[in-house]
Computed example of a mutant assay.
Amino acid sequence: MSEPRPHARDRLPIWWRWWRAAGHLAVGVDFDGTLAPIVPDPEAAQPLPGALSALARLADRRDARVAVLSGRALDDLQRRLPVAGVWMAGNHGFEIVGPDGTRWCHPDLERSRAALGQAAEQLRRAAAAWSGVFVEDKGGTLSVHVRHADPTARAAVEAAVRAVAEREGWRLTRGLEVWELRPAVAWHKGKALEWLLARWNWPAATPLLYWGDDTTDEDAFAWLRQRNAPGEGVLVGPPEAPSAATAWVEGPDGVAALLAALADGP
């Protein structure tokens, strides 16, 4: 039987030791369910004030870099995070913007925009027959929200989404009450973190911590495990949940408290 996943607060001394040894630290954080509590209406989601304050303090340090990586569209993410000095990645890392406003977009995202827009219209027409289903075109990926869907419609929604993914050859993932469609290329939140380290011109062995709560965060957790460098994936959720993360914290309040403690050291 495997060892239980430790609580992230018990890992703080180790993280500080890594930070002192390397002289710098990279921090990546998901948005929904990590900085912001999950709410019935995704448009109403807002980060906890304590999380914003902690991110600002970390980003203000010369020996730290901070990035928020989300499935949300990049413009949407920027509106919700009024924090100077933080890098932001939208559409699961396909779009990235730096604190100075410099933007980068994965080339395959640009090539897929038109087809994604057409698929969104097709799914919206189908969703008209399903109460509570919302199709969100994020300009590079699609989300089909089923949080408020009639339970009897969920099987039909899944069949329609899978049919589109198979026809276009796109990657399909199931999140928390949402189906995600995105280009089937070797790019995800882990690759985005790797890109950021290179962009910051920091060594590949830089210690890196990443917090997340959903299916697409597993890409980052798995990437961290295969890195030959200090790092940790922190699952925002129950300690027994299946995940490649190596530590856990109970929710956005816990994330905010840990980020604040991290900003105070080493």
Score class of each variant (00 low, 15 high):
residue 208 L to S: 03
residue 246 T to L: 05
residue 180 E to L: 01
residue 13 P to V: 12
residue 117 G to L: 05
residue 139 G to M: 03
residue 59 A to E: 11
residue 147 R to Y: 10
residue 158 E to D: 08
residue 248 W to S: 01
residue 155 A to C: 10
residue 253 D to W: 08
residue 145 H to A: 00
residue 6 P to G: 07
residue 248 W to C: 00
residue 112 S to R: 05
residue 186 A to Y: 01
residue 8 A to C: 03
residue 259 L to T: 01
residue 59 A to I: 12
residue 23 G to W: 09
residue 177 E to G: 00
residue 13 P to C: 11
residue 61 R to A: 07
residue 178 V to I: 09
residue 228 N to S: 15
residue 173 T to Q: 08
residue 164 V to W: 05
residue 187 W to A: 01
residue 176 L to S: 00
residue 67 A to L: 13
residue 75 D to W: 08
residue 245 A to H: 01
residue 84 A to V: 14
residue 260 A to H: 12
residue 263 A to E: 06
residue 71 G to F: 00
residue 144 V to A: 08
residue 67 A to T: 12
residue 80 R to W: 15
residue 257 A to V: 06
residue 29 V to Q: 00
residue 174 R to D: 06
residue 137 D to Y: 12
residue 84 A to R: 13
residue 122 Q to F: 08
residue 37 P to F: 09
residue 230 P to S: 09
residue 197 L to T: 15
residue 232 E to K: 00
residue 159 A to F: 11
residue 90 G to E: 10
residue 100 D to Y: 07
residue 148 H to E: 13
residue 172 L to C: 04
residue 60 D to N: 07
residue 107 P to Y: 01
residue 3 E to C: 04
residue 185 V to E: 04
residue 39 V to M: 09
residue 161 V to I: 12
residue 265 G to R: 11
residue 81 L to S: 13
residue 37 P to G: 03
residue 58 L to F: 10
residue 166 E to F: 00
residue 166 E to Q: 14
residue 61 R to T: 06
residue 119 A to L: 07
residue 222 A to L: 15
residue 208 L to H: 07
residue 13 P to D: 15
residue 59 A to R: 08
residue 18 W to A: 09
residue 183 P to A: 01
residue 228 N to L: 10
residue 198 A to M: 04
residue 205 A to F: 05
residue 84 A to H: 08
residue 230 P to Q: 08
residue 104 W to R: 07
residue 171 R to M: 00
residue 227 R to W: 02
residue 112 S to H: 12
residue 92 H to E: 02
residue 150 D to V: 05
residue 103 R to S: 09
residue 217 D to A: 00
residue 264 D to N: 14
residue 216 T to M: 03
residue 199 R to A: 15
residue 6 P to R: 04
residue 1 M to L: 09
residue 45 A to Y: 06
residue 98 G to R: 05
residue 232 E to I: 01
residue 116 L to M: 14
residue 237 G to N: 12
residue 252 P to A: 02
residue 12 L to A: 11
residue 3 E to H: 06
residue 201 N to P: 01
residue 73 A to E: 11
residue 183 P to E: 04
residue 168 E to M: 14
residue 48 L to F: 14
residue 188 H to S: 14
residue 167 R to A: 13
residue 247 A to W: 05
residue 138 K to D: 01
residue 81 L to D: 11
residue 27 V to H: 10
residue 69 L to Y: 11
residue 252 P to G: 06
residue 200 W to I: 10
residue 169 G to Q: 05
residue 8 A to V: 10
residue 44 A to K: 14
residue 71 G to A: 03
residue 73 A to I: 03
residue 24 H to M: 12
residue 207 P to I: 02
residue 117 G to E: 04
residue 41 D to A: 06
residue 181 L to P: 04
residue 230 P to H: 08
residue 118 Q to S: 12
residue 163 A to H: 14
residue 58 L to D: 01
residue 182 R to H: 05
residue 26 A to F: 08
residue 152 T to K: 12
residue 233 G to D: 09
residue 241 A to T: 10
residue 129 A to M: 07
residue 215 T to L: 05
residue 153 A to M: 05
residue 193 L to P: 09
residue 8 A to I: 05
residue 259 L to N: 03
residue 258 L to R: 02
residue 20 R to G: 04
residue 150 D to P: 13
residue 38 I to M: 06
residue 88 M to W: 08
residue 19 W to G: 03
residue 68 V to Q: 04
residue 146 V to W: 07
residue 244 A to Q: 13
residue 264 D to E: 15
residue 71 G to V: 01
residue 83 V to K: 07
